[in-house]
Amino acid sequence: MVSLKQIKNIKYYRITILRTIIQVISFILIFGGAFGIAATFIVLPIMAPAGNPYTTVIGAWQLMELMLTIAIFPFLALAIILIGSLLIGRTFCAWVCPFGLISDVVSYIGKRKRVTKATNNSMYKLSLFIATIFLFIDFSIAYNQAIGHSIYSYFGDFYREPSSIIEPTTILFSLLFWYFYRGLYPKDLMDLGELLNYPWVFWFRVVILLLAILLNYYLPRWWCRWVCPLGGMMGIGSKYKVLKVYVDPKQCLGEKCGKCVKVCPMGVPILDYIGKGISHPLCTSCLMCLDVCPTNAIRIKI
């Protein structure tokens, strides 16, 4: 990841700057209820919590869980995930997702540690595993609801969205939002002891959130790469996406340069795709590779 200090000439990072501006605008619009924007019926392939009163759109993963757990098949969420991933892959992860913006901001100021290609590819499968586990739980709840045998009580507060226990956007924008909005925090030094009496779930979720945000300092977008269940599912379609980042073999300098690989926040082995479109499940089309390519060998292609 390129540090802000390393940006010597701003023109070389024009797409990244444009992307950051779009991310900020998207962030404002997603939580537009705070500025008087009414809630819409739009569902996007991003992680957007439903529990925040200011959200104007809903994330496809959240919608899928919320519908499944009351035994309604989530046709709309499924359509968005399938068609969206097939057309543009995980582009929304890089350009719109609110947690993507937070991850990017932390990683811009961070020190990048590299992981091997094999580790990165193997760890991507963890996100698929997590998605499968939670979908299994959702379908189990749905099946039991459908046959009139509710198993909600087994899941406590998470009976409608089991994955929200580990999902950082819901922790940040729903749990912590309500915590501060309702003034549930200790207001006096004498009340600090109350913190010890909090439910373990609160601290568990806060630790998950802190890890999800702070580890970006060393591993850019580690959560998006290896844990995000929606990202994992979108990655399947992303392998066959129509709009791809293409590396021109005539212009690419290959291993001699390798700037694109160093700058890629998702750790995509871009040089493995010389002469063809990048069909890696982790590619989010953030176009940082296109920004740094000295020979303009990288471009968007259908």
């Binding site: 507060d157 309500w178 439910p199």
Partner: peptide, 8 residues
């Protein structure tokens, strides 16, 4: 309240 599990 689905996403606010763990509030004190």
């Amino acid at each position: 309240e689905y996403e606010s599990g763990g509030l004190p």
